[in-house]
Nucleic acid binder design. Structure first.
Length: 371
DNA sequence: AATCCGGGGTT
DNA sequence: AACCCAGGATT
């Protein structure tokens, strides 16, 4: 390497020949070791885009369940553009970051109306789509269309931080700038036969399978001989962890009100946390912080809590939630944002994660069967 | 630059 | 339990 003990955050390009060897070795490894992921079997920009949107801060294993279902429900841009908000949210239920689902549909409508239903191939036009940032734009253009667009996700940031001994904090501006610089350098080279599609996916796959966040398998790494972090014995310590903040404890009560085999469900407000999702009536116990302190629409006044059925633990980003699940009776007739539904109908709604956990257990709580 | 937004598999 | 994941929008 031309670089010695780089402790700063400047990416210095390796020698031409080294760069070629790195690219060649990683591509070769990728061809043998890559996972057989369904979205790697298509080059349809729309299908790739859906996969990338789902994969934002979401594990591959989770997306495996959702991607095929979503594509069956909305096979192309036009189908997604004319779908109802509710149908899209329902297909997204459980994936989290529900803003993504809204943005996805908004972007589909932009493509449908302004690009004739054809996914744009211009970088700036892709980047302008709602919910599409630098990573997703580069990912779709490189993976689907094989254009030389760089990408940096959590995997790529980590791989470059170790490979070039970039000593920075995970997700920080300086490290991200250095990683993007390295990504641009490698993907733009045309001195060999490694296509952008292969290079970008190989980088991420290396981060997922070998250059893992903790306990990297350096012995199995195809580019280990060029790795400055490994040579310095600090691969496992890069990138440096982001300073953590203590989680916020939240106590909630959720009410399961049943009437004639139907359960009371309510819809969350259109703005804010888990916007528009359905759940069982829920309030925060010790003063409103994460959730409202009382139920909307005067529902709380007509809802009579009864015995506790169970308690659950749940996490929402920085919040650690303890939920007391109580049986309840309610005289509320239902409304636009409050419905009485049978258990199977409840399970078809766009539920929050917490509500989905409970919905799976509703049958055990039908009256007469006990807890 | 910091903060917010879900949920879950790994370790 | 802590960590962090094929990030983007908002402030």
């Amino acid at each position: 390497m031309a670089q010695t003990a780089a402790s700063d955050l400047t990416f210095e390009a390796p020698d031409e020949e080294v760069a070629r060897e790195i690219r060649s070795a990683l591509a070769e490894w990728f061809h043998h070791e890559q996972r057989d992921l369904p979205w790697r079997r298509t080059r349809d920009p729309y299908a790739v885009w859906i996969s990338e949107a789902m994969l934002q801060q979401t594990r591959v294993e989770v997306v495996l369940d959702y991607w095929p279902r979503f594509l069956r429900a909305f096979p192309d841009v036009h189908a997604l553009a004319r779908a109802t908000d509710e149908a899209v949210l329902e297909a997204w239920s459980g994936l989290g970051y529900y803003r993504r689902a809204r943005a996805l549909q908004a972007a589909a409508r932009v493509i449908d109306e302004e690009h004739g239903g054809v996914f744009p191939t211009d970088h700036d036009e892709v980047l302008a789509l709602p919910g599409v940032g630098p990573y997703t734009a580069g990912a779709v253009l490189s993976i689907a269309l094989d254009l030389p667009e760089p990408i940096v996700d959590g995997n790529v940031e980590r791989v470059f931080a170790r490979l070039f001994h970039l000593d920075g904090v995970r997700g920080s501006g300086p490290l991200m700038r250095a990683a993007w610089s390295a990504a641009r350098y490698f993907v733009a080279r045309e001195d060999d036969r490694v296509p952008p599609r292969v290079w970008n996916q190989a980088l991420m796959e290396l981060g997922a399978l070998v250059c893992t966040p903790r306990g990297p398998r350096c012995g199995a790494c195809p580019v280990g001989e060029w790795c400055a972090g490994r040579a310095a014995g600090v691969a496992d310590d890069l990138p440096r962890p982001k300073p953590k903040r203590p989680p916020v404890e939240v106590r909630l009560e959720t009410y399961l009100a049943e009437r004639d085999g139907r359960w009371l469900v309510v819809q969350r407000p259109e703005e804010g946390l888990m916007a528009g999702m359905w759940e069982f009536p829920t309030v925060e116990v010790d003063g409103p912080g994460l959730f409202p302190g009382e139920l909307p629409g005067g529902l709380g006044a007509r809802l009579e809590p009864a015995e506790e059925l169970t308690t659950m633990r749940h996490g929402i980003t920085k919040h650690r939630i303890t939920v007391s699940v109580r049986r309840a009776t309610c005289a509320d007739p239902g409304s636009k944002s409050a419905r009485w539904l049978e258990a199977p109908e409840v399970r078809e709604l766009a539920l929050t994660g917490m509500a989905r956990k409970l919905a799976e257990r509703l049958d055990a709580w039908e009256s007469g069967l006990g807890a």
